[in-house]
Design a binder for these strands. Structure first.
Length: 823
RNA sequence: GCCGCUGUGGCGGAAUUGGCAGACGCAAGGGACUUAAAAUCCCUCGGGGGGCGACUCCCGUACCGGUUCAAUUCCGGUCAGCGGCACCA
């Protein structure tokens, strides 16, 4: 054993050892319990910083701990490697996206991740931008096409002018592009969609089964799916005879309808205004509204505006004629694109009615204070008794909702229905660096999927990256011109590529059998490894990746490829890494690359600090002095062990016979504490604090030298400490483990178990309170009876002083903890 | 506006089932070692008061109130910060 702790030498040595011995390679083994530990795989942007590595360190501790607990641990790593930055680099620097990407991967793998000492089975590395992976994206796309789950439609879609591509709804945040924050505009385009709405009900219902997910994420998913239950009702357009269908969640207010509002895009609009004197004004209004971008259009603060179409519709419940307006706040995408307006009981309708002087009719009466239309300052949206509602007068509106719905269905003027906020997932991207959509268009045969035996449709390499005009795939004649697989005639390929979120929607299944050539993954292998027992990643994916991956798992299940409803058993969303008060990011200029920390302190120090400074789900302030502290801790252990190294090698570690020795007791208390802290919500910070306490106690124990007969106890403490620190500081632990005479890797050593008898104390300190205030402490033998405890407490001089001679009213005793004398 | 989370020393954080508030670490101050420094080791370290002193008393977990022998923990209200949703019919 070297006198000084030299992380550089140690870490290089053990990383080589793990690589050469394939220490973390795993295969299916039915005789052992499996554990699948997965961190969200990275986009290989080039250089990562400690903000990125935090998640891998957290996952690595889990994986190493579970391995020592005897689990067959699958812990893979790969690359989410399709995406825009590669293409932008190509445009800017003239490097092909593939070259740029693969070089980044090599650097990140070999110079950053491997140097952190992460226990991955690198033989399972998955790289989504390579044909052996993306061919299965294409295969899955075709399967989904065959089942009607992938379809093409012309519609208004989100367009990011800066990224020059379409975005899915989930990728628009506050009207801005999730990646570059440009204002998202609307475009009418023909696009491929995945029918995620077909799974809306199940995606929502199964949220209830994800009991080991953070409630926050589930709330976000439930909000995003946005189920609302209501009624569709047909109003008849006066003079036209056509049905104008509306959706409402408030059928109880149907008698309060005083006008209707439709979206500017509503298909019936032309018919409504045909021949009316308002026609030109309405058209001008609609064009003005439709020109607005998505953010402006859906901003709730925007004033409600509208224009009368000149048409009337008949309310089927009371046969009243009400005017039909166009409203700027009515959305074509939600419901039926038309609403009934009840100004008395809907705030938007109320504002609209006030602005345009439309009538207000109260149909729900406030039980506390009678409403009257003249005095109303805002809509009354609470419950009450129905009024002016024909046969429903007098009943509560809560019951009324059901009764009116029954009535509507009986009269066949509408039906109960559900509406979803969730939209189908638009997956077409007008860019090069993604999976080509495996579809061919033939003038004779129409849309034809590429036959399975012709997969993969590879990305062409002979393309130019100009950054101008259309995607390189459109410009590449050799790619788009092809033959129809059906009739052999001339045809052209789809030139759009898939959203990169498709890649990450099933990669966790691919890890189970990454080399499989006949299917996306081997069903048996997936049956063994899935689900992912622990998934770890950022909260930013709460409704993106995590929703898509759940959807894909269900689709894959229904294709008969996998038996299981949900991919991720337990989810941990780690906090971000903050420095100087801001999230670590390249643009803020506050990044700390792991390489720098590793060179100066070593990976074990970097790991220890990241784990100690905050619990995993909370944000972590990166602070150099804190890193020093972690470094000091490792040195302190090393120095202590070095001092007694020769001595303890001559003895066997203490066992039961040492019960009663204070260090032996501390050793076993620490085993218990560290194990519980890891098992309970991965509280690594307190687990490491417990190790520090143990080391402090070892220093005290050895302060006046160690006699021969204490060496076995010291040896057991040192061995235990080495094992307990192994998941956190693995290189450090390996080196010490070897120096203690062990021939095999500590990664496969058994996690220690605490001896319950060793931690039993003979005596306990009992807090003595008078009227709830601590006044004294007593040291009593364990098992002292309540009667004796009370007597001891009352005999205590401090107690006598504070009770002032008064007799106790009550004495509360909590065994082994506290006595409270109440006077 | 609605929903959720959070609020503890100079700082990061701990207190697991209602039972000693501030574990552990950082920073700071003092001391030992050293020609000196670094490193290391030891001590002090929430605020205020009293005592020469071993000590001791009061206050304190955003704020106000409640339940309880006992509240950082449970309940009600207020404030602040963060996050999500939001013209969704």
């Amino acid at each position: 054993m070297e006198e000084r702790y030299d992380p550089k030498k140690i870490e290089e040595r053990w990383q080589r050892f793990w690589d050469q011995n394939k220490t973390f390679k795993v295969t299916e083994d039915a005789s052992r319990p499996k554990y699948y530990c997965l961190e969200m795989f990275p986009y290989p942007s080039g250089r990562i910083h400690v903000g990125h590595t935090r998640v891998y360190v957290i996952g690595d501790v889990v994986a190493r701990y579970k391995r020592m607990r005897g689990f067959n641990v699958l812990h893979p790593m790969g690359w989410d490697s399709f995406g825009l930055p590669a293409e932008n680099a190509a445009i800017k620097h003239g490097i092909h996206p593939e070259k740029w990407t693969l070089e980044n991967i090599a650097y990140m793998r070999d110079s950053q991740l491997k140097r952190m000492g992460l226990s991955y089975d690198w033989d399972r590395e998955v790289t989504t931008c390579l044909p052996d992976y993306y061919r299965w994206n294409q295969w899955l796309f075709i399967k989904m096409y065959e089942k009607g789950l992938a379809y093409k439609k012309r519609s208004y879609v989100n367009w990011c002018p800066s990224c020059a591509t379409v975005l899915a709804n989930e990728q628009v945040e506050d009207g801005l592009c999730w990646r570059c924050s440009s204002v998202v505009t609307h475009r009418e385009l023909e696009q491929w969609f995945f029918k995620i709405t077909a799974y809306a009900e199940e995606l929502l219902a199964h949220c209830d089964t994800l009991t080991e997910w953070p409630e926050r994420v589930l709330t976000m998913q439930r909000n995003w799916i946005g189920k609302s239950i209501g009624v569709e009702v047909d109003f008849t357009v006066d003079g036209l005879g056509e049905k104008l269908q509306i959706f409402t969640t408030r059928p109880d207010t149907l008698f309060g309808v005083t006008f209707m509002s439709i979206a500017p895009e509503h298909p019936m609009l032309d018919a409504l205004i045909a021949g009316k004197k308002q026609a030109d004004e309405v058209r001008a209004f609609c064009q003005r509204v439709m020109r607005l971008d998505k953010a402006a259009r859906t901003d709730g603060k925007q004033e409600k505006e509208g224009v009368f179409t000149g048409a009337y519709a008949v309310n089927p419940l009371n046969n009243e004629k009400v005017p039909v307006w166009v409203g700027n706040f009515v959305l074509m995408e939600y419901g039926t694109g038309a609403i009934m307006s009840v100004p008395a009981h809907d705030q938007r309708d109320f504002e609209f009615a006030k602005k345009y002087n439309l009538p207000v009719r109260i149909v729900i009466q406030n039980a506390g204070k009678d409403l009257n239309t003249a005095a109303m300052k805002e809509a009354y949206v609470n419950d009450g008794a129905m009024t002016s509602s024909g046969p429903f007068d007098g009943i509560s509106n809560v019951q009324g909702k059901e009764k009116v719905a029954d009535y509507v269905e009986k009269k066949k003027i509408g039906k109960r229905t559900k509406n979803w906020r969730l939209r189908d997932w638009g997956v077409s991207r007008q860019r090069y660096w993604g999976t080509p959509i495996p579809i061919i268009y033939c003038d004779a045969c129409g849309t034809v999927p590429v036959p399975e035996d012709q997969l993969p449709v590879k990305l062409p390499t002979d393309v130019a990256f100009t950054g101008k005009g259309l995607s390189p795939l459109v410009e590449s004649g050799s790619f788009s011109e092809t033959k129809c697989p059906k009739c052999g005639g001339p045809a052209r390929r789809e030139t759009d590529t898939m959203d990169t979120f498709v890649d990450s929607s099933w990669y966790f299944l691919r890890y189970c059998s990454p080399k499989e050539e006949k299917a996306p993954f081997d069903k048996k292998a997936a049956g063994y490894w899935m689900n992912v027992d622990q998934y770890i990643g950022g909260i930013e994916h709460a409704v993106l990746h995590l929703l898509y991956a759940r959807f894909f798992t269900k689709v894959i299940r229904d294709l008969g490829l996998y038996e299981g409803d949900e991919p991720f058993q337990r989810l941990l969303t780690q906090g971000m890494v903050v420095k100087d008060g801001a999230k670590m990011s390249k643009s803020k200029g506050n990044v700390v690359p792991p390489d720098v920390i590793i060179s100066k302190y070593g990976a074990d120090t970097a790991r220890l600090f990241a784990l100690f400074a905050a619990p995993p789900e909370r944000d972590l302030e990166w602070n150099v002095q804190g890193v020093d502290g972690a470094y000091r801790f490792l040195h302190r252990i090393w120095t202590l062990i070095y001092k007694y190294h020769q001595g303890i090698l001559k003895v066997k570690a203490a066992a039961k016979e040492a019960q009663g020795d204070p260090l032996y007791r501390k050793t076993h208390l620490t085993i218990k504490k560290v194990t519980e802290d890891i098992e309970r919500e991965f509280h690594f910070n307190t687990a490491i604090a417990a190790l520090m306490e143990m080391v402090n106690e070892m220093y005290e124990y050895t302060a006046d030298g160690v006699s021969e007969n204490k060496l076995p106890v010291l040896r057991s403490a040192i061995e235990t400490l080495t094992l307990l620190i192994a998941p956190f500081a693995p290189h450090f632990a390996e080196e010490l483990w070897e120096s203690l005479g062990n021939k095999t890797s500590i990664a496969n050593a058994a996690w220690p178990q605490h001896d319950p008898e060793a931690i039993v104390a003979k005596s306990v300190t009992v807090v003595v309170q008078v009227n709830g205030k601590v006044r004294s402490k007593l040291t009593l033998a364990v098992g002292t009876s309540d009667k004796d405890i009370e007597a001891a407490a009352l005999a205590d001089p401090k107690v006598k002083e504070h009770t002032n001679g008064k007799a106790p009213k009550k004495v509360i005793i909590v065994q082994g903890k506290l006595v409270n004398v109440v006077v």
